[in-house]
Structures are given as structure tokens and as C-alpha cells.
């Protein structure tokens, strides 16, 4: 076995070419699901057949929001909830770019919920990778619009009574053309979905149900990250094309994963070009 000694790391991990190693180690806790979402993403990038110099990664704020800062491509760390508007602007200004938004559930469907809805409605050609850890992790584990009913968080000490957002259903209703969900355990299938989503013209969404091993799992006494991965192993079921109305996530209940939506709709940029050509006669 080749073992690197401290201080003289000669060996290079195969993903280093796409990572900002000067910023490592990253901030994520042991057993956190964000790191594994990133390895799936980087592996997917290596399988894509286009020039990665034409890709831009955009994140908002949160633990997941740190992703853009660790990927060695053009990347943008924006304000909380506004990753999608920044991404829309980048795509409109330079439609040749592939734009990927990588951010958390709080960032994208709570404070950024309206942007999510309207980007899907417009069918702007961006890919959204959403890490759903059911909580506002970075700020201390507060209840989020994605927190399952009855789950404890630091601000729902008697359990959450709200109905959580069903993210795939929200995306479908708003107009997304590609919608998939995996857990952090399904890393190979996740990688494949990320490739498909990036190659799909229009608004595509990949939701990743992932452990927050620091807050969500501790407060709910669900063990370490590996215990949550074991839970996904025993309790997730692959059902491609499942109607999205059935995809609500309950507290420690079965998680349905798969590809649910893959359809065609006119894109925002094409519609805009056609319209302006017609308007100008």
C-alpha cells in the first residue's frame, strides 16, 4: 500500500484536478452527506463530454452553499436564497455556458423558493443539485420547510408540526423537465442522474437526501452519518416514474427514489429568441 507521510503528500487523488485543494480540508463534519454529493458530482463531471471551461457552478449560503468554493471551475458563491437568480443571469448573458446550481434545501426552497418556482416555470436551461438534509444546518439546525413532521430540531423542541415541502412535486408542478431524487447512499445512480440532468436542456433538478450528522441526526438520536446511510439502505425504494404526489418524505419513513420526470418543454432562451425575432418581423 502506498501511504503518504504527513507533510509530504506526493500522491494525487484523481478528483484533485477539479477541486480547490488549497481550501482543503473542507468544513463538513465527519459523516456529513455533502462531501459524498460532491464526489458524485465530480465523478459525473469527468463523464461529461464537453469543455468544463464552459461550466459555472453557483451556490447560495449554507453548509451545502460551500460547494461552489471547493470546485475548481468558474464558480460563484452568492447570497442566501439567490443562487438561482445569479445562475439565470449567467445563462442569459452567456447561453453557451452550462450552469449548475449546487445548494441546500433551505437556500433553494425556503428563502429561495420563489426563484426555484419561476426558474422551473420559465424552463431556463440550468441544473439544480439540491442537498436536502431536512434542516438549516449551517446556522445551528433550525426547523426548515423541508423538516419531516414530528422531527426534532433546535427550534422545534417538541417536534415539527408542519407539513414539509415535497420537492419533486413542487418542481414538476412548476414546470421542471427533469426531476430525480437519490440518497447519499445511491452514489453511482446519483452520478448517472447528474450526467443526465446536465445534458438535459431546460430546468433539471436532482434532489439528494443526505445526512446532517451534526444536527439532524444528533437531535433526533439517529446516530452517526453511517447509521443514516444504513437507514437509507434499508428504507429506500427505487420507483422510476412514480407520480410525484407520492413523494412526500415522512420522519424515518420509506424514501422513494428514482427518476420521476423526463419531458420536453420550450426553453426560456429559445422562446425569448423566437419571440424577439417575430416581434422584430
Amino acid at each position: 500500500m502506498a501511504m503518504a507521510e504527513k507533510g509530504k503528500v506526493e500522491e494525487k487523488h484523481p478528483m484533485e484536478q477539479l477541486l480547490r485543494m488549497d481550501r482543503m480540508p473542507h468544513i463538513w463534519c465527519p459523516g456529513c452527506g455533502i462531501g459524498i454529493s460532491v464526489t458524485a458530482f465530480v465523478s459525473a463531471l469527468k463523464k461529461l463530454e464537453f469543455d468544463l471551461n464552459k461550466m459555472c457552478v453557483v451556490s447560495g449560503i449554507g453548509c451545502t452553499g460551500r460547494v461552489a468554493g471547493y470546485i475548481k471551475l468558474d464558480s460563484f458563491h452568492t447570497t442566501h436564497g439567490r443562487a438561482i437568480p445569479f445562475a439565470t443571469g449567467i445563462k442569459m448573458a452567456n447561453p453557451d455556458l452550462k450552469v449548475v446550481v449546487f445548494s441546500g434545501d433551505g437556500d433553494l426552497v425556503s428563502i429561495g423558493g420563489n426563484h426555484f418556482i419561476h426558474a422551473a416555470r420559465r424552463n431556463i436551461d440550468i441544473t439544480v443539485i439540491l442537498v436536502n438534509n431536512f434542516i438549516y444546518a449551517m446556522t445551528g439546525g433550525q426547523v426548515a420547510p423541508t423538516t419531516p413532521e414530528t422531527a426534532y430540531t433546535t427550534t422545534s423542541p417538541f417536534g415539527n408540526f408542519e407539513t414539509p415541502a415535497n420537492i419533486p412535486q413542487l418542481a414538476e408542478a412548476a414546470g421542471a423537465v427533469y426531476v430525480a431524487r437519490w440518497t447519499a447512499l445511491h452514489v453511482r445512480r446519483l452520478e448517472k442522474s447528474i450526467v443526465e440532468a446536465i445534458n438535459k436542456p431546460g430546468f433539471s433538478l436532482v434532489e439528494i437526501v443526505a445526512p446532517c450528522s451534526m444536527y439532524y441526526s444528533r437531535i433526533n438520536r439517529l446516530g452517526a452519518g453511517i447509521d443514516m446511510m444504513r437507514f437509507y439502505h434499508e428504507n429506500s425504494i427505487i420507483k422510476h416514474d412514480e407520480p410525484t404526489e407520492n413523494l412526500a418524505v415522512g420522519y424515518q419513513k420509506q424514501i422513494i427514489v428514482g427518476k420521476f420526470i423526463d419531458r420536453e418543454r420550450p426553453g426560456f432562451i429559445e422562446s425569448n429568441r423566437r419571440w424577439s425575432a417575430e416581434a422584430k418581423g
Partner: peptide, 18 residues
């Protein structure tokens, strides 16, 4: 395969072992 491990990067999550 030959395995490469940079021990000081590891946070002991156990995913690789499992």
C-alpha cells in the same frame, strides 16, 4: 487494485469500510 490512502485527510466516517 492498489489502494492509496492519505491518512491525515480521513475523518473516520467509515463509509469506505462499509
Amino acid at each position: 487494485g492498489e489502494i492509496h490512502l492519505i491518512k491525515d485527510r480521513c475523518k473516520g466516517c467509515g463509509f469506505c469500510v462499509e
